Amino acid sequence: MREKQPDRRRVLAGTAGLALAVTLRPAVGASLPRTETTEDAIRRFAGSARIRPGRVALDLPPLVENGNTVPLGVTVESPMTPDDHVRRIGVFNERNPQPNVVTVHLRPGAGRAQVATRIRLADTQRITAIAEMSDGTYWSGSADAIVTLAACLEG
């Protein structure tokens, strides 16, 4: 039995409908509400502990051409010994739909308190990294990124 091939009229109508739906659809990232504020996400990470500036450095390009894949490096000043090491590093943003980008858990055996990844940025914003140390203190560092082509706009 021979399958029926779609005719030209149906293909064109389907293509036109899809193009119209994509054109009329609002930018999802702009319409998605944030799950929580950046401050709330940081408080969930650090509790009521005081967060001091310093010891944390971010390697983030200041000008990002495409927000879909942005290289990010975080380094924390720590000897990474059993008595003095980084327990966790949390990375937070101001404008993405979810403020907590990533949380990394480390142990003294890691050797260095340094992580690298790629993230998506919805818009020009400040990225903040917070490190929890083995003595219970929290340290932070921030960097700004100007994004020319935003990411996080698709559902």
Rank of each mutant, 00 (worst) to 15 (best):
R50I: 13
N93R: 06
L63Q: 06
S31W: 14
A143M: 03
Q114Y: 01
R52T: 07
L32P: 00
S78F: 02
V76N: 04
E132G: 04
G136T: 00
L32Y: 07
R120S: 06
A49K: 05
E3H: 13
I42F: 00
A110Q: 03
L18S: 13
Q114F: 07
A143K: 09
R2A: 08
I119D: 11
G54Q: 12
L58T: 11
P26Q: 09
A122W: 02
G73Q: 05
G136L: 10
E154I: 05
E77L: 06
G73H: 00
L32I: 04
V115Y: 12
R44V: 03
S48D: 15
A116R: 10
A143D: 05
R112T: 15
R2W: 09
L63P: 01
R87A: 01
S78Y: 10
V91L: 01
D7R: 13
V86H: 15
T23Y: 11
T128I: 14
R88C: 04
P99T: 07
I146T: 13
E65I: 15
G73D: 14
P33R: 05
V147R: 15
G47T: 01
S134L: 03
L149H: 14
N100Q: 11
P53H: 11
D135K: 12
G109T: 08
A150D: 15
V56H: 10
D144K: 02
T148W: 00
T137L: 01
T103S: 09
A30Q: 11
A131S: 04
L106S: 08
G90E: 00
R34Y: 03
A16H: 05
Q5C: 01
D123Y: 09
E77G: 07
L106V: 02
A113M: 04
A49W: 00
E154F: 03
T81F: 15
L72K: 02
I42S: 07
R2T: 07
A13K: 02
S134N: 08
G14R: 15
G111K: 04
Q98K: 14
A122P: 01
R118E: 02
S31T: 14
A151E: 00
G90C: 08
D40E: 05
R87I: 05
G54M: 10
G14S: 14
R10T: 04
A57S: 13
H85L: 11
A16G: 10
F92C: 11
